[in-house]
Design a protein around this nucleic acid. Structure first.
Lengths: 348, 348
DNA sequence: CTGTTAGCGCTTTCAT
DNA sequence: ATGAAAGCGCTAACAG
């Protein structure tokens, strides 16, 4: 039994015009304390709830945002989601959660549905779209913040924000640690080729090798799905082909756990026979045996910062979102979060 | 740069009335193939996107739903969320994700915001509200489905759906297994007192003890926060007070992992010195050492079923949601999902 | 301080 | 098969 009480009902009952009710509800404009109280009482009595829909139509602001991510069930993204939702909620916004399931078509589809819902802005995580598609998307939304993805060369640099993790440094730190602890044959389970983070981490890996003057061998690198089973299979394959590897740098903690399993199956002891390093530091990382050396990514903050950036963009451009001038255009901001290297038993 | 193209623009450009455009967009009413195509072309060319807001105001249906959960970052709920979102999306609905953070005040607040957003329905998970508050909430929404929570004695049984896990059976299975494998001193880390599931699992525990003719000892039961640290502390405390315990039934897998840690710290070997059982079978459960014996809860399905129930309720009552008759009233449905007992090394 | 007049962009009658 | 008129519930812009 939905709410059927309208502002007109309240106005009528309180003996005022709807405008006065509107002023009371929105705390704007001057209203005499007496009338205000009277209106408030009626609202309370009738249990009136303003319609966000009607309000949205009138104001062209819905106080509604979209969060597009590959998969909430992935612990990485559920933390991002949590951070984003928290910030949005604190500012009185509701957020539509949209899973893309890593499918670009679906990503496009949810983005379109968000467009129809007239969201005030979108946080788009780990987009699998190509630059052109992405530019299209950005042009059709009032405000967009990218997470884990950068978009270069915007013709007009209309405020696309971005929050990134310094994956290159992360990959470098991990690899350097391995090198520093004496390893020379370091394999890389690189994750999905479509992953931008994966590519950056791999860059870090190569950079560290170069730093140390160690020859980079492509045969030591193998792509894999970003889950436990993907890691297990990839590790098994790579170790079978290259038994001489003494360490494995894994795309993320899930993959690393898979690698741990592969080692168990192949009778290779971690860390004695093989050092294993993960990435992200999800809850799981510290709880497996041996606990994983990894690189912590501030996921909650990633979501929170992205949302803050988005909200800034939104109220940075009060109305005229189509008529952007140098003055009201949101600045093009990029925030880079540093991952933190954490040593545990899997690679002491 | 949001979408400024309106239906009127399309109509004008195509030389028809907005009604014709509306008919084309919604595939309803007869429109000649020729005009239809012409309109479609204009829509395509202008990249017209119908406004869900305007449509919602006119139709009183927003194709928008609310999902209220304690915390997406909790692996249990992120799976529920995933299932729910998947089903909703398949039917063309968008869902607002709302975290309550276990705080009843916040729960009430998000529920109110959902009301203002005029969602067509709400899936409410593990509500911490008391029955009266809950009844209030239900009465103010067109459709509500409860997850992990039952609401008895609705004065009018207006279609509140519920999807439940048979926690009692689950608790009983777990305890019986422990009993069957020779344990007589079985402790219970019961989780938060506010958790309905926790209470039901504890009932199952007592029932199994009674079944086996084993005396129930309240001193063996201790409440705890539903996370790793909560489990660690509670286990440490309980084991210190009752070193004679030979098995621990934990509220959920997180708590069980905490118990594992406590054991490690106290030098008690699992499963030799102490058997440990968890609940839920989150990803983590199979990956810790030793892998946890647990009771799998079909979380994804829990969310999916809840959403299906909700969607049924919604289009079961086409318009007149205030004027409910015996005929159009949604049936009061309860779905009970059975957990599945899984034996692993922590309690063979 | 309060009310009036117009819409916001769509869909619902009811005509034609 | 198509259109005209009215209205969904609210707010912007002016009055007064």
């Amino acid at each position: 039994m939905p709410n059927r009480v309208t502002m007109a009902d309240v106005a009528h009952e309180a003996g005022v015009s709807t405008m006065t009710v509107s002023r009371v509800v929105n705390n704007k404009g001057e209203v005499s304390p007496a009338t205000r109280q009277r209106v408030l009482d009626v609202i309370e009595r009738l249990r009136y709830r303003p319609s966000g829909i009607a309000r949205g139509l009138a104001t062209r602001r819905t106080r509604t945002l979209g969060l597009v991510i590959p998969d909430v069930a992935n612990p990485f993204f559920s933390d991002v989601t949590r951070g984003a939702e928290h910030v949005a909620y604190a500012q009185g916004y509701n957020v539509f959660l949209c899973n893309t399931e890593e499918d670009p078509q679906r990503e496009l589809a949810v983005l379109r549905s968000l467009e129809e819902k007239r969201v005030d802005g979108v946080v788009l995580c780990s987009s699998r779209l190509d630059d052109d598609e992405l530019r299209q998307v950005v042009s059709r939304h009032s405000a967009v913040v990218l997470v884990n993805r950068r978009l270069e060369s915007m013709d007009e640099q209309n405020g696309v924000g971005a929050v990134l993790v310094d994956d290159l440094s992360g990959g470098r730190m991990v690899t350097r640690h391995l090198l520093d602890t004496g390893h020379r044959a370091v394999g890389l389970l690189a994750g999905p080729p479509t992953s931008h983070s994966g590519r950056r981490r791999a860059e870090g890996y190569r950079a560290a090798l170069a730093d140390a003057g160690v020859q980079y061998d492509p045969a030591w690198v193998i792509a894999c799905p970003a889950d436990v089973d993907g890691g297990r299979r990839a590790a098994a394959g790579l170790l079978a082909a290259h038994p001489d590897l003494t360490a494995l740098f894994c795309y993320n903690d899930l993959v690393a756990v898979g690698a741990l399993h592969a080692c168990a199956e192949m009778g290779r002891r971690v860390p004695d026979d093989l050092a294993v390093v993960g990435f992200d530091d999800i809850l799981l990382a510290a709880l497996v045996t041996p606990p994983l050396t990894t690189c912590r990514v501030p996921r909650y903050e990633l979501g929170g910062q992205a949302m803050k950036l988005l909200l800034n963009q939104i109220d940075g451009c009060p109305e005229s979102s189509d008529q952007r001038t140098e003055a009201n255009r949101a600045p093009r901001v990029e925030i880079v979060l540093r991952p933190e290297f954490i040593v545990r038993a899997s690679a002491p």
